[in-house]
């Protein structure tokens, strides 16, 4: 599904505070499976997620998505691919305050120009699946942590992506909620979606729902 070869990423290139977050990563991510990146903070796993998820471009190296080289694409096209292929669940949930749960969920579909009625219908189906139906109209800042994450999950699914990317999904959840999340994760696999996540939570990386764990340290892959 996704192949990375010799991928490097630098920040503040050419300046005194130049910093290489990734030093040549070679990795293949299989379709339909759950892959976890494990490593201490600062190991480069989030940077790697952004490169795979088309949020940023590698400084050098290649990223292939379904065989197509996407590493040199301008942002305009990366965005298009990102919107169609990836759904994101962020550590801080990153919901927009002041908007209702429903509005937040349909936001990623706005640039597609799909009619509102269609989006609302799709969002309602997702809400039912995630047992959030009763909270659809509530403003997101009034929701509990678990509910907020489920809104974020629904948002990640609104464009029906093939790949779900989750950055430290259980960092802000207690054990019960984390288990609940893992159950939802299994649902993704059942639906044929590819999942890529970062975590150092044993509950996640040791769970049977995760098929493969990739270790990272100092911008390089290490044996897990």
């Amino acid at each position: 599904m996704i192949q990375l070869s010799a991928v490097k990423k630098a920040f503040n290139q050419g300046r005194p505070n130049e910093y290489w977050a990734l030093h040549g990563i070679d990795l293949a991510i299989e379709a339909g499976r759950v892959t976890a990146l494990r490593g201490p903070s600062g190991s480069g796993k989030t940077t790697l997620l952004t490169l795979i998820g088309c949020l940023a471009r590698p400084t050098s190296g290649r990223v292939r998505l379904r065989g197509e080289d996407i590493s040199g694409l301008p942002e305009r096209f990366l965005t298009e691919i990102r919107r169609q292929t990836f759904g994101f669940i962020f550590q801080q949930f990153n919901l927009i305050k002041g908007l209702s749960a429903l509005e937040n969920v349909i936001l990623p579909a706005f640039p597609t120009g799909r009619p509102r009625a269609e989006l609302v219908e799709k969002a309602e189906i997702l809400f039912d699946q995630l047992k959030l139906g009763h909270r659809a109209a509530a403003k997101v800042e009034w929701l509990s942590g678990g509910e907020q994450q489920r809104v974020a999950i629904a948002r990640a699914l609104i464009n029906d992506p093939a790949v779900i990317i989750a950055d430290e999904p259980t960092a802000n959840l207690d054990t019960a909620l984390a288990r609940e999340f893992m159950a939802i994760l299994e649902g993704f696999t059942a639906a044929g979606k590819t999942v890529l996540l970062t975590s150092h939570d044993p509950l996640v990386v040791e769970s049977s729902a995760v098929h493969r764990v990739v270790g990272m340290r100092d911008g390089r892959l290490v044996d897990a």
């Binding site: 949020l55 942002e75 305009r76 965005t79 298009e80 990102r82 919107r83 994101f88 962020f90 990153n94 919901l95 927009i96 936001l107 990623p108 706005f110 640039p111 948002r155 464009n159």
Partner: peptide
């Protein structure tokens, strides 16, 4: 957030 979830510049 908007850009991350798929809005273009």
């Amino acid at each position: 957030i908007l850009k991350a979830i798929g809005w273009e510049t």
